[in-house]
Design a protein around this nucleic acid. Structure first.
Lengths: 141, 141
DNA sequence: CCTCAATGATTGACAAGCTCCACGATATCG
DNA sequence: CGATATCGTGGAGCTTGTCAATCATTGAGG
């Protein structure tokens, strides 16, 4: 790795930072950051809600981080913790009607914001990028 | 962005974290982390050394972070700060002979470590990934 | 049925990173 | 010369990432 511009790790870190910053800026109007948004998307995506443990696993976060994120989303009225019917330990995090609406609006803004750093790639190239990254992420479990 | 697994920002963040962690583990034997390694690579790559401002710009870091990274590398004897011949404000960070050797060893380890998360992509796919990311990073200035 | 290890959520502590702001030294432009 | 900008540096504050400990609950095995 003689050239830093050829280092996949460096490029990933840099690109990730750029996109995260742009997305955060786009979501700021909703008072959200990418981390909250990710939780909101997952919570709204599962009809019955998703356990915090599953959230942590899917997001690659420590469970203790999920606690706080869900706290803040719940304070904002975007998600709620429901008891599980089968396990009294787990709390299912589900999007409220308000959360669903905010998620749709935020999704549009986030997608638009990402195009600032990602706009230099056409739609097909972006799809290729997502496909490659998906494989990397999935293969990690 | 109905599915989080289709969100470029999320995928980038996740993949970046995976690779960074693997690289850090690989570099730990040298007492380095990716951030130090990046500085070392750039410092060793420029014959006359590189100003800290340029380092910050190239790495996308705040100049104040570069100060500390260079401090630690200099303490380890891997780089040194040289006065600029044309501007007494700037300090040119250049790799020492030891730094050059460590950089070569670290490069091999880092590349190998990255293959743990990136190994699921063949060589051509990794090249495609790097090319796409390069364009995103470069287009940001 | 009872014990015991494992699990889910939570809290608190701590290191690592990032961002901003301010300052001293120097450079540059008018 | 004087105003303004730049470079390196230090420090404050916030966000993240990681870890250990705790409590309630579950599930398995005796």
């Amino acid at each position: 790795m003689t050239e830093l511009t050829d280092d996949a790790g460096f490029l990933l870190s840099r690109a990730s930072g750029l996109v995260a910053r742009a997305t955060n800026a786009a979501l700021a109007e909703h008072g959200l950051r990418v981390r909250h948004y990710s939780v909101l998307v997952l919570a709204c995506g599962a009809a019955e809600g998703m356990s915090q443990r599953d959230l942590a696993c899917r997001l690659g976060l420590d469970p203790s981080q999920v606690v706080q994120l869900v706290d803040e989303l719940a304070d904002a009225g975007l998600v709620e913790r429901r008891p599980s019917a089968t396990d009294r330990r787990t709390k299912l995090v589900a999007g409220t009607p308000l959360g669903q609406r905010v998620r749709r609006q935020a999704a549009r803004r986030a997608t638009r914001g990402q195009q600032r750093p990602l706009g230099c790639l056409n739609e097909e190239e972006q799809a290729t990028l997502r496909a490659l990254l998906s494989r990397v992420v999935d293969s990690a479990g």
